[in-house]
Computed example of a mutant assay.
Amino acid sequence: MTPSKQEILRMAAECFMEQGFHATSIDDVARRLGATKGRIYHHYPSKIELFFDVHRAGMELLFSAVEPASQIEGDGITVLTAMLYAHAMAVLEHHTYESVVAQGVQMHRFGATTPAQREILDELIGSRDRFEAMFKKAATVARKDGTLANVDVSIAVKTLLGGIQWSLIWYRPEADAGPKSRRVLAEQMVKTLVEGVRARGDGESATVRGPSRGAKAKA
């Protein structure tokens, strides 16, 4: 049976996550599918085109999760929290695809690509920027209604999203007990992140200070 594009993308995402783009071959994906590499070439002329499509699919999954959350009713921090929770769940549930998205960001920054490939990467990173902009918009609303602390919105959003993205490094789905445990994990991740930027009762944000002048580090 000829594998569908969705099956190819799913298996490719697993291979790219486990081995990285450079170490993964079309043969690796074909073996995982139990198909010939010709079946894959029928849909994708090259490995990088396949990688790009996995990246696109990963971004679509993120937008599909977060856009509905951005429309809920509530004050700014409530909406921002809902969006972060949706993002965290999407990352945990589709970690293979989201690992490829993270690789794509690194490829855009450091990878040697052709001008044509660079153009596609620019398009993909543009999608990533639009995703981040959704959170900046929500955080700006939260700043205005007083539910977000007096923090730099851009830095705060990058830190919040980065905290969720870091789970791609430490999350181990094979040790996962199922959907309920993912929900609990997502809730705890978001609670930890949001409490750092939530406005305090007195309207002031938590103060972060460096070591005092002349202070000595403990051994």
Rank of each mutant, 00 (worst) to 15 (best):
T147E: 08
V208A: 10
A90V: 03
V184K: 15
G126H: 10
A88R: 06
R209K: 14
R128I: 02
V157S: 05
H108R: 14
H108Q: 13
G111M: 07
T114C: 01
D202I: 00
Q165M: 06
T96R: 07
Y97I: 01
V197G: 08
R128C: 08
I120C: 01
A90G: 09
G163W: 04
A138T: 03
A199K: 13
S181H: 11
W166Y: 14
L193E: 02
N150V: 00
V100T: 09
G196N: 05
T81S: 13
A156G: 13
D129K: 15
H95A: 01
E195A: 01
T159H: 12
L193F: 08
V153Y: 09
H87L: 12
T78K: 15
K180N: 00
G111E: 07
T114M: 00
V184W: 06
T192D: 06
L84K: 09
S127V: 06
Q103W: 10
L160F: 04
L160R: 02
V153C: 10
E98P: 01
P115L: 06
R182Q: 11
W170N: 13
D75N: 15
Q103R: 12
R209F: 03
L124G: 03
G201M: 11
M107H: 13
K137M: 02
Q103P: 11
E204V: 01
R183W: 02
G162A: 10
Y171V: 03
L193A: 14
T207C: 00
H108V: 03
R198E: 10
V151S: 04
R109A: 03
P115F: 04
D129F: 12
V153Q: 09
V153L: 09
E204F: 07
G111K: 08
G111T: 03
A199S: 12
V151K: 09
G178L: 11
S205W: 04
I72M: 13
S127Q: 15
D122L: 11
R172I: 06
R143I: 04
V105L: 12
R118G: 13
A133W: 12
M107N: 07
P115H: 04
N150C: 00
G203V: 11
T147H: 05
L161D: 03
R130K: 14
A90E: 03
A102L: 12
A199R: 14
V190H: 04
D129W: 12
T113K: 05
Q188Y: 04
A133I: 11
V79Y: 05
E204M: 10
A102M: 09
A149N: 10
W166H: 12
A156D: 08
S181C: 09
P173Y: 01
S167N: 06
G126C: 10
V105K: 11
R109Y: 03
R128A: 09
F110Q: 02
I169R: 12
T192F: 14
A186M: 08
Q117P: 04
F131P: 05
R182W: 06
F110V: 00
M134R: 13
M134K: 14
S181F: 06
V184C: 03
M89N: 05
L124E: 06
P115C: 05
L161C: 09
